[in-house]
Nucleic acid binder design. Structure first.
Lengths: 177, 177
DNA sequence: GGACGCGGAGAACGTACGTTCTCCAGTTCT
DNA sequence: AGAACTGGAGAACGTACGTTCTCCGCGTCC
């Protein structure tokens, strides 16, 4: 097995496990078992668990935003489509909220790289919304709705939080014109 | 030292430590040191760490909602006052987001009592908003804004998230009439 | 064919921490 | 005063886990 393939497998396993159970609850041994990569190789690819966590977050950020971007783009970049995408996400089996918010809660004082990954993800999403809804603070307001809906859907388990937020977003968009 | 006083001190110490550093990062020994209560007594009051965590969450829920309720009531129960209160909270030194959201992220599969405390807190806040803004789904929309602002303020460190959410809330309230 | 090096399996090590146990000083009751 | 009890300080125990080490088989090169 090639080293880049090992890295892929590790990241795949890490994402499944970390997202489902939380980072702290998953041991390196579980990642090894799930990925089929030996511990020695694991530590060659990622010298410490923090490095793996950081890579997991970066990868998740990119995939998550790509999925959102493509979905919304296919709907003519309608800002409301963001909330339709959210609803689908919330309804996925295994949905457990935002990986970045969860990680933020998990680490009281996150390692610098992890804290940066979390902040960067939120900054990127915010920037994306600003592209979608230029001008004014409207994008920031929508962002707040997105985050709130995600958190509440995770805790209550109700994908309908997306619909609630969508309703609010519609009013805000109409008000701005 | 009386047993109820020990309980008080333990909960006080637990809240300070758990909220500041996260539950998992704080050992029972740290709670003992901070509270000045002996380990033996600690385990008499709370047979296991989970019990202490649960009590911490219940106490925090009550105090947090009481503070919000009183502030908003002093402003004539104006729904927008909720966001003013949030802004003050976000600006407090040591603000680290919502204890319940953080705990939710911290535990992949929380112990039943802890999961229940988290869900109960959110249900109580939602119910409070429904009292404040009766009828329709408006209260739920405001709730989403509240949660979103809290999460974003925690991650970005910017209390201005409350102002953003307040602006959105104002539009929503005006739209409903 | 034999020496060499890479990679895997899993043991081993150190540490942290939840929980329990031991011991002892001070207090109360007879 | 002496016995019994209470509560505190901190050692001890078991476990989990991040990380490193050991050993061995297998393919590669002289």
């Amino acid at each position: 097995m090639n080293s880049t393939e090992a890295t892929d497998r590790l990241l795949e396993a890490a994402e499944e496990l970390f997202y489902a159970h939380g980072v702290q609850a998953v041991g390196m041994d579980a990642v090894r078992e799930r990925s089929g990569v030996s511990l020695k190789r694991l530590y060659q690819c990622f010298p410490a668990k923090n490095d793996l966590v950081e890579a997991y977050l970066l990868r998740r950020d990119e995939r998550w935003r790509k999925s959102l971007r493509e979905f919304v783009h296919a709907r003519g970049d309608d800002p409301l489509a963001v909330f339709d995408w959210l609803k689908n996400w919330f309804a996925e089996p295994g949905f457990r909220g935002c990986a970045f918010i969860n990680s933020f809660g998990e680490f009281g004082e996150p390692a610098p790289g992890i804290a940066a990954a979390i902040r960067r993800h939120k900054a990127e999403v915010r920037a994306y919304l600003h592209d979608l809804v230029p001008g004014g603070g409207l994008a920031d307001q929508l962002f707040s709705l997105v985050e709130g809906a995600t958190v509440l859907a995770a805790i209550t388990g109700d994908p309908g939080e997306a619909t609630t937020a969508r309703g609010a977003a519609k009013v805000l968009l109409a008000a701005q014109g």
